[in-house]
Design a protein around this nucleic acid. Structure first.
Lengths: 136, 136
DNA sequence: CTTGAGCCTGTAATTAATACAGGGTTTAGC
DNA sequence: GCTAAACCCTGTATTAATTACAGGCTCAAG
């Protein structure tokens, strides 16, 4: 057994393991997303697998579009009794936001594709499509 | 007909008409997304409907997730200052960019929806979303 | 004529990082 | 045992994209 009993990480090791930038870890410490870790005798930060878990949670949440403030809220729920309704509501409101962005991007993509097609002639492009986007 | 013949806007009026913050207009001027407008005798900025059009385009593009730098590229296309080949290339590379963004957002949306679907809601002690974010 | 709204300028604060500068330590090679 | 690279520490500065504020002018209404 003894697959990984209380492995320690330096800041650099934690950065590699979590996929979070070295400096960003210190930043998260400053804004209290991450706790002040214990230090070794030489003053180096000494992280545990719990820290790795928490930091990975933060990274994933950020990648899903949660702001640092929202992540702080999620972490509070992780730490305490998590209020499932609150989490779900936050997730779904982000889904709405993303869906809207996707729809808008689709429209602009069509407009740009149309414009590119008109550019094929070799003359100065007619910006009718962009104009249309401007008017709407 | 004379629906709107060369209406002038103050900075405040332009802000209201475009939906862009008053201060942001000055900022766009500083980073050259917006031109230095003519001034009235008292030094006030004097905008036209062309400025409004351009600023609205910038706002929409920003809302669609383009960086200010990317918006600058889009505006070059709108201005038609480039030869057709350059314009077409820029347009198509932006289409790629948008397609990529759409794909990424689609993945995010699926991930969030999947997590939310597994979440029972209510005040149950376990939250599927948080569990997923905590997974090793 | 005197408020107050609106304009002007330059600078500071905000969010979410990232990048130094100028040090101290640790480890790997010779 | 010694040197040099690699890694850690701190604090501060920079980035992007705004937004806010301080300290003044000016214009329109009562």
């Amino acid at each position: 057994m003894n697959t990984s009993r209380k492995r320690d990480y330096t800041r650099g090791a934690l950065a590699k393991a979590s996929g979070v930038n070295l400096e960003t870890i210190r930043f998260y410490e400053k804004i209290n997303l991450m706790p002040n870790p214990p230090r070794t005798s030489n003053g180096y930060r000494c992280y545990s697998s719990d820290h790795l878990k928490r930091l990975t949670f933060i990274r994933r949440s950020r990648e899903l579009g949660f702001s640092n403030n929202e992540v702080a809220g999620l972490l509070e729920m992780v730490d305490g009794t998590h209020d499932c309704d609150g989490v779900k509501h936050l997730a779904l409101s982000n889904v709405d936001l993303i869906a809207h962005k996707i729809a808008d991007l689709g429209k602009l993509k069509l407009a740009l594709e149309g414009m590119a097609a008109e550019c094929a002639g070799g003359e100065t492009p007619d910006c009718a499509i962009i104009d249309k986007l401007l008017e709407s």
